Computed example of a mutant assay.
Amino acid sequence: MTRPHAKTRTPFWDNARFAAIVLVVFGHAIQRLTYDSDAAEALYLLVYAFHMPLFALVAGYFSSSAEPSRARMARLFTDLIAPYLIFETLWTITQFLVTGRTNLDPAQPSWTLWFLLALALFRLVLPYLALLRAPVVWALAISVVAGYLPSIDSTFSVSRFLGLLPFFTLGWWLREHDVVARAGLLAARPVWLRVTAGAVLAGVGALALVFVDTWRDVRLGTWFFFVDPYVDLDAPQWWAGGIRLAIIALALILMTAFLLLVPRGETRWTHLGRYTMYVYLLHTFVLYPFRQSGVLRGLEPSWLWIVVVAVASVVIAVALSSRPVRRLTRPLVEPRMPWLFRDRELGTGRASG
């Protein structure tokens, strides 16, 4: 009897995941420096313009539009809903210990936990969205229209789920139509293309710095969150949806440039791309004391501290995805609850389908 072949992983996607999670850590770490540094503000805007859309696109690429099986429905709970409830509880306790106040409300995700709920909603709606003609166009229309509706807010991450839906749907569409393989997008990139990609990222970063006061005035960083309706962003005009379209287009350009720079083959950190959920859920507990203490305010020279924060972000990502940390925190990040299901196998994470 022959043993089934293990599913092979493509190094590029693990490289992309790890590089993206470093950007997430860096974006959160540098936020306190933006109050005193235009350079930090520019980098913050550059990162936030595309890093969560990129995560949504990659998540969509590895999602299925098939009719949900029992195992997949169970994993939706064990992989996303249960960790959300666990970490929401931990954050409630942490905030009470630090501030003496708490507001336990699972409908309003704490800090980064919104993405778990958004990802759960993405997976729930994808089989229905895939039934439509031009699903990416529908997702784009839904995202733009949602911004006109003030009743759609951050409750259960609905506003962000709808706002980022085009990226998730596009990721699924690329996999469904085998675009990556057909276009040879995993082949080695010529030097001129990588130079162009770097120039695009540098150019957008330079524009962010040169016009940083303008971007602050128009609250561009808040637009990148895909949370608030247009009217709350001081854009009640009929053409406000065009701004979201422009932001989506910018995100696509930047993530394309970013992905062109990601190594295609195995690297020393490729395997860490499998464990980005650990970094995503745990890094906020590492950063929280620094954000709350104010030690990152008023530091001079600011450019030196930006470098320090960048290096620290890589170190944090590597440390939190390391084997000892994974062993210690696995019950929180990847809970297994066979006691919860009538079929205990569904709660072990080993059920097929």
Rank of each mutant, 00 (worst) to 15 (best):
P127T: 14
L116I: 03
T78P: 04
D36P: 10
V136P: 02
Q95A: 11
F62S: 09
A29E: 06
P127I: 04
L149F: 14
E67I: 07
T92C: 03
D38Y: 14
Q31S: 13
G100T: 00
L76W: 14
A66V: 15
L140F: 12
A49L: 05
F50N: 07
Y61R: 02
F77I: 10
Y148M: 13
T89K: 07
L116F: 02
Y35Q: 11
S69R: 14
L126N: 11
A141I: 06
I93P: 02
A59L: 13
S143N: 03
V137M: 08
P53T: 06
L121H: 04
P53V: 07
L119Q: 10
A118I: 05
R123H: 11
L90F: 11
S64Q: 05
A39T: 07
V136R: 00
V136L: 08
L90I: 15
F115Y: 12
I142H: 10
H51Y: 10
V125L: 11
Q108D: 11
W138P: 01
E41F: 03
V98H: 03
L43S: 06
S37Y: 01
W138L: 00
L45F: 11
A130Q: 00
F77V: 14
A49H: 04
A49F: 10
F55K: 05
L90T: 13
V145I: 15
L140R: 02
S143P: 04
Y61C: 02
Q108V: 02
N103S: 15
F50E: 12
T94N: 11
M52R: 05
R32A: 07
A71D: 11
V144G: 00
W114L: 06
T99E: 10
L149R: 10
R75K: 15
M73D: 02
V136E: 07
G147D: 04
L97F: 12
F55W: 07
W111H: 14
Y84C: 10
P109R: 09
I30S: 06
P53H: 09
W111F: 15
G100P: 00
R101M: 03
V144Y: 02
F50S: 13
S65K: 01
P68S: 10
R72P: 08
L126P: 03
A146K: 08
L43V: 05
L121G: 00
A74M: 01
L33S: 08
A120Q: 06
P135L: 12
Q95C: 00
F115K: 01
L119Y: 05
F55M: 07
L132I: 03
A42Q: 03
L116H: 06
A107C: 03
P68T: 14
H28N: 13
P53G: 04
T78V: 06
A130S: 15
L117C: 04
L124V: 08
F55E: 02
L45V: 14
L80H: 05
V47C: 07
M73I: 09
